[in-house]
Amino acid sequence: MISLKTPLKKEDIQKLNVGDRVLLSGTIFTARDKACNFLLQNHLAEIENSAIYHCGPIVKGNKVISAGPTTSYRLNQYTPELIEKYGVKAIIGKGGMDESVLNALKGRAVYLSAVGGAGVIYATATKVKNVYKKEFGMPEAIWELEVKDFPAIVTMDSKGNNLYAKVFQKSKKAFVKLILPTK
C-alpha cells in the first residue's frame, strides 16, 4: 500500500505502476461533464496541479453522505486538454479512459480506480472544504474535498500501461470464440 499526499509531485507519479494500491490524502476536486467543460472554457486556479475526482456526491449541509466514482469514459473528450491546461496529476474514477487520455498521462499523471457503488466508504474518508459552481446542481458542481487515506488502485500509469486495455483484449478473445461460428 502506497501513501500519497497532495499536492502530488512528478516523482510521486512516475513511481506508480498499474496494480499499485494507494491511499490518497489531501485535497481533490470533483468534476463531471458540466464541470470539465466549464474548466476548459474558464480558468479556476485551484485546479492547477490538482487531483480530479469523477464523482457526483450526495452532500447534506457540509457533510458528505455518499461519494463513490462515476463512469469516466464520458469525460474522455475533455481530459487530455485538462491535463495539458492545468497540469492535473491524478484522475480518480471508474471504468477506465481511452487511448487519448493514456497518451496525455505519459510522464506526468495517473488514473486511479475507485470501486463504483462504494459510496459510504469513500464518504467516510471525505470532508467538504469548498464548492464552486453550485448552480450546476449537486451532482455537477465542483466540490473541493479533503480526503484521508482514500483507497484506490493505479489502473493507468504514466508509462503507458493500462489495466482496462489488457482486460479488453482478453475479453475480446473470449467473446469472439463464444459468438463465432453459430453453435
Binding site: 464523482c55 457526483g56 456526491p57 450526495i58 453522505i65 455518499s66 461519494a67 463513490g68 462515476t70 463504483g116 457503488g117 462504494a118 459510496g119 459510504v120 464518504a123
Partner: peptide, 8 residues
C-alpha cells in the same frame, strides 16, 4: 449507518 449505498 442507514446511508445511501451508492451516491447515484
Amino acid at each position: 449507518d442507514c446511508l445511501p449505498i451508492c451516491q447515484d
